[in-house]
Write a protein that binds this DNA or RNA. Structure first.
Lengths: 166, 166
DNA sequence: AGCCATTTCTTGAACTTTAAACTAGTAAGC
DNA sequence: GCTTACTAGTTTAAAGTTCAAGAAATGGCT
């Protein structure tokens, strides 16, 4: 046999794939950097932290269990724990014991946090818009969403909340 | 006047834009996390550091000026400086004075660094492929590349290396 | 009830990143 | 030649992230 299974030549990326991949890396680096600076300047927090406030503002009663928030934001619970500690020091979020499960904690968006969010939102949308959506056709926006969703879904633990399907 | 210029309602994202934006955030979080873990496990370094070795391996004589490498990888010079210090401790890169400019430094990929890279590459390509390219149609790969390039180009200092055009 | 595995969240240390200040060398104007 | 401005790269300290370990509560299972 010329190429035994354990010495198989890897399936390298085609030129198109390689170019797309490099473009993605550059776009994501520049974008994270851009948004982090914008929000650090205008709202005093990095983009991920802003995202946490957004998720909380979308939740009923402006509160979410730590694990739910971590899953929604796609970050580890450890990272979230540190982040909430910091946001709590800013007075933008507070922790609250979960009544039904004594292990649980709710992260609650404070009124002050909500104000900060409302104040920062317009500038942030403008930054996102001018970096991305003002540059894409409506068709491309659709394609972009589809592609990102495929990638995101592929990386989720398939039946994370449906263990019997695994 | 009903809405003075300084109280203009921000141009919020449309539903399509909002969905695409959330999908992007999720995809990029999950992807960075996935690749960081994969490379940390298989090569002992985070994804950005691996990217630096890749750029060096592509450069003539496996070396690049610090500033060029920082620009290629879209990271700050400070970040690069720290990263190279760490990679130098691993013996995968070494610094070399630039002959023509006494301020300058070249980052040089060592033979050992090149070996580490060659050993890690197949696993990494496989990770990228299975997370992204195996899930997209060839058409989508093209769209993805185009869109990312538009975003990346939009965030570059327009004539960074053509100051007379600014 | 008692036991064991699991879940929830936090912690501390190591590591990475950022922002700003700093050193040293180059370049431009006079 | 001297001054001034700029460029290349590093350094420091603070902020953020990861990893592994740990405390506390829950949920079966017997």
């Amino acid at each position: 046999m010329k190429t035994p299974a354990d010495v198989e030549e890897p399936r390298w990326l085609t030129d198109d794939e390689q170019h797309a991949w490099q473009a993605y890396i550059q776009a994501s680096m520049l974008l994270e950097d851009h948004l982090d600076r914008q929000l650090q300047r205008d709202a005093g927090m990095p983009h991920v932290y802003y995202g946490l406030l957004v998720k909380l503002s979308w939740a009923p009663r402006h509160r979410l269990r730590m694990t739910e928030l971590a899953e929604a934001a796609k970050i580890t619970r450890s990272r979230l724990s540190h982040a909430i500690t910091r946001l709590e020091k800013n007075g933008w979020v507070r922790r609250e014991d979960c009544p039904s499960d004594k292990r649980g904690q709710n992260a609650v968006l404070t009124d002050e946090g909500f104000e900060v969010l409302k104040k920062a939102a317009p500038g942030h949308v403008e930054a996102v818009r001018s970096a991305i959506f003002d540059r894409l056709t409506p068709e491309q926006v659709g394609q972009f969403g589809d592609i990102c969703r495929i990638i995101a879904d592929g990386l989720q633990p398939e039946g994370a909340d449906l263990p019997w399907l695994r």
